[in-house]
């Protein structure tokens, strides 16, 4: 069940990001918050859903793009951030997406608890 929730969040978030280019941060925050609200999980579980749902979405998509292009750009941008390789940048990408998704989903879940 939890796994399905994570996957659903990932897929819906991906669709909205494609539909609303340039608004990644707002899309992730809104979709995650709404999912937290709808599913009404325990706060920790909601946070984990957001963290994993968005983190894996961003991280794996970034990793795939990087892989497809032999890390031609990943390694250069990693260097701009003084990171040793693109893999760490992929991780950072997943992490920031995940944190945003996690806290937004957490907020949704907490809000539902408050209302319920």
């Amino acid at each position: 069940m939890f796994l399905i929730q994570i996957i659903t969040l990932s897929v819906v978030c991906a669709i909205f990001q494609v539909l609303l280019p340039g608004n990644a941060v707002y899309v992730v925050a809104t979709v995650s918050l709404v999912f937290g609200l709808i599913f009404g999980q325990k706060p920790f579980k909601a946070f984990m859903m957001g963290l994993l749902g968005i983190g894996l979405l961003w991280g794996s998509y970034a990793a795939w793009l990087d892989q497809m292009t032999d890390s031609i750009l990943g390694v250069k941008v990693a260097a701009i951030f003084s990171l040793p390789n693109a893999l760490i940048l992929v991780f950072v990408t997943g992490l920031i997406g995940g944190l945003l998704g996690g806290f937004a989903a957490l907020s949704g879940a907490l809000f539902r608890q408050l209302v319920a």
Binding site: Q17, A24, W58, A62, D66, I72, L73, T93, G97
Partner: peptide
């Protein structure tokens, strides 16, 4: 960072083969 790193329209999309 969010705009820049997100793989949907951030910099990862500029990588090409």
């Amino acid at each position: 960072l969010g705009k820049f790193l997100n793989p949907f329209d951030g910099f990862w999309q500029n990588a090409q083969n």
